[in-house]
Design a protein around this nucleic acid. Structure first.
Lengths: 118, 118
DNA sequence: CAGAATCCTCATTGATACTG
DNA sequence: CAGTATCAATGAGGATTCTG
């Protein structure tokens, strides 16, 4: 997943997708940016425990995949905004579905564990 | 992702989801099993380069998440079949959407790279 | 056939300090 | 503010051997 484009490996579309949104942080970053445009520090404050290094790396990856857009404002102090690209926007319904499925899944799981230990 | 259930960390449904279908192999395994029930060796022959250890581990994970069902037939030689659980079945439309999105994404990417190097 | 057990490598992640 | 740079830890994934 570190090399951004390996056409030989792209025979499986689902794997491509998981390469893009997978990992520990990408889901949360995309969720944040699907709400609105955010600055670097906003993202870091919003996402618990993410380090600067990780946030930077994930943002660079997503940018390379054309999922997000990085806009630099030439001013002091520096200001960099991140937002979903057009590509990224098409991802939103998918992410919503994922969220919906997960909620249902977790709901059932919690129900099950409750009925076992009353 | 190694510990199967950490309720404290499950506040983010999307992350849960990615924990379930993420990783290098789960996508392919789920895709296979969404086609039909398969035996261990069938899966290994179908999925390129996966080792026994990895296949075993991923299958155990998916089983623990209640996404697939493992059925053992008491006979010699041993026979074990894997199939999607009811939970897993609800995942199919999502996987289809992921595949669809990825195809479109890859299509645009190939188009772009073609127009840059004619 | 369907694995379990062991040992190993290397990419991902993290902690910390520094900077234009 | 928005990053780099460096070093250290972790764990996913792999190679190989063995077994009921």
């Amino acid at each position: 997943m570190s090399e951004i484009f390996k056409p030989e490996q792209l025979f499986c579309p689902t794997e491509t997708m998981l390469g893009i949104i997978g990992g520990k942080w990408k889901g949360m970053i995309l969720w944040c940016l699907s709400q609105r445009t955010m600055r670097f520090n906003e993202l870091q404050r919003t996402i618990p425990n993410i380090t600067q290094k990780m946030l930077t790396k994930q943002l660079r990856d997503l940018e390379a995949y054309d999922i997000i857009v990085r806009e630099v404002f030439a001013q002091v102090p520096p200001r960099v905004e991140y937002r979903l690209s057009d590509h990224g926007e098409t991802l939103k319904p998918i992410l919503d579905d994922l969220e919906e499925w997960s909620k249902t899944y977790l709901g059932k799981k919690i129900e099950e564990s409750r009925s076992k230990q009353p």
